[in-house]
Computed example of a mutant assay.
Amino acid sequence: MTGALFGPLLVGDPNAFVGSARLQPPSSQHWFGTDNYGRDVLAQVVYGARSSLLVGVVSGLGATILGTAVALLASMSRWFDLIVMRIVDGVMSFPILVLALAMVAILGPGLFTVNLCLMIVLFPGVTRVVRSTALVVAELPMLDAARAAGAGRTRILLRYVLPACMTPILVQGAIVFTVAILVESALSFIGAGLPPDVPSWGASLAASRSYLATAWWMWAFPGAALVGTVLATNVLIDDVRDLLDPRMTEH
């Protein structure tokens, strides 16, 4: 995260072509070596981190907010729950990558399109998990007491149901963030994600396919960045879940 924020202040233009510096191994001048166009791999990795993290944060946050809002409304209205959950089931019946690829093919590649597609594709998973918790909370006696006291539906959702669902919301938000990064990298790997002039870990891995044995640094460093980000996020998810789960608290 720190490298993505401040790295561009230390590295050069990731799209700068230097023909005389093609396929140079890591050195003091190019710490991560250069690719087949003479571009600095370190700059590609750093700027690729900005693109991947931006997609993960924007689409993950959007999917989490949308999924949570739909789940809360579904927990308070039976007819809305019946309709929206059939839509959720329909969306979740398709593989995430296939559905995202189909939407990108229709709307066209681009940063906004990728974020929008991932948000639509990923929010059903958040909705299903948060809805299961919200339905349990909606049946608690305290909500009957709140209704008897004259509390409206909006106040009940925001004052009682939403706080009780914060643990699954946070965990699902972190999971969606990770999945969004992986799907964006997969889309960019096949050329259907971000534009060619926008560095991406997936695009860097795609460019290294013809140089797996002769230029290992072209795939090793972007791959390590992608794997490291996913693993670090998964560790954070486990820590947050253990911290917020009262069953894991030592008495």
Rank of each mutant, 00 (worst) to 15 (best):
T2L: 15
G3F: 10
A4N: 04
F6E: 04
L9A: 13
G12R: 15
G12Y: 08
N15D: 08
A16H: 08
V18N: 12
S20A: 14
A21V: 09
Q29G: 14
G33V: 14
T34D: 12
D35L: 08
N36C: 08
Y37I: 10
R39V: 05
V41K: 03
Q44F: 01
V46E: 01
G48A: 05
S51K: 02
S51D: 03
L54K: 02
G56Y: 06
S59K: 01
L61W: 03
A63W: 00
T64C: 03
L66C: 06
L66I: 13
G67N: 05
T68L: 09
A69P: 03
V70G: 00
A71H: 08
L72P: 02
L73K: 06
L73C: 10
A74W: 10
S77N: 15
R78G: 12
R78E: 15
F80C: 02
D81V: 10
L82S: 12
I83W: 12
V84K: 09
R86D: 14
R86N: 13
V88G: 02
V88L: 09
D89I: 07
V91C: 05
S93A: 15
F94R: 04
P95W: 12
I96W: 07
V98M: 13
V98G: 02
A105P: 01
L107C: 02
G108A: 05
G108L: 07
P109H: 07
G110P: 00
L111P: 01
V114Y: 01
N115G: 03
N115H: 05
N115V: 15
L118W: 05
M119S: 13
V121P: 11
F123W: 14
G125L: 12
G125E: 13
T127M: 14
R128N: 08
V129N: 06
R131Q: 12
R131N: 10
T133S: 13
T133I: 06
A134S: 07
L135P: 04
L135Q: 10
V137A: 15
A138D: 06
L140V: 02
P141Q: 13
P141R: 05
M142S: 04
D144H: 10
G150C: 05
R155F: 08
I156Q: 09
V161Q: 11
M166W: 15
V171A: 06
V171H: 09
Q172V: 02
I175R: 02
V179N: 03
I181G: 00
L182R: 00
L187Q: 09
I190C: 11
A192V: 08
G193I: 02
L194E: 04
P195C: 11
P199A: 10
W201V: 03
S204H: 06
S204W: 01
A206H: 13
S210T: 10
Y211T: 11
A215I: 07
W217E: 12
M218N: 05
W219E: 02
W219V: 03
F221M: 02
L226K: 03
V227Y: 01
V227W: 03
V227C: 04
V230G: 00
V230C: 01
L231H: 00
L231Y: 04
A232W: 13
D242G: 02
P246L: 13
P246G: 06
M248F: 11
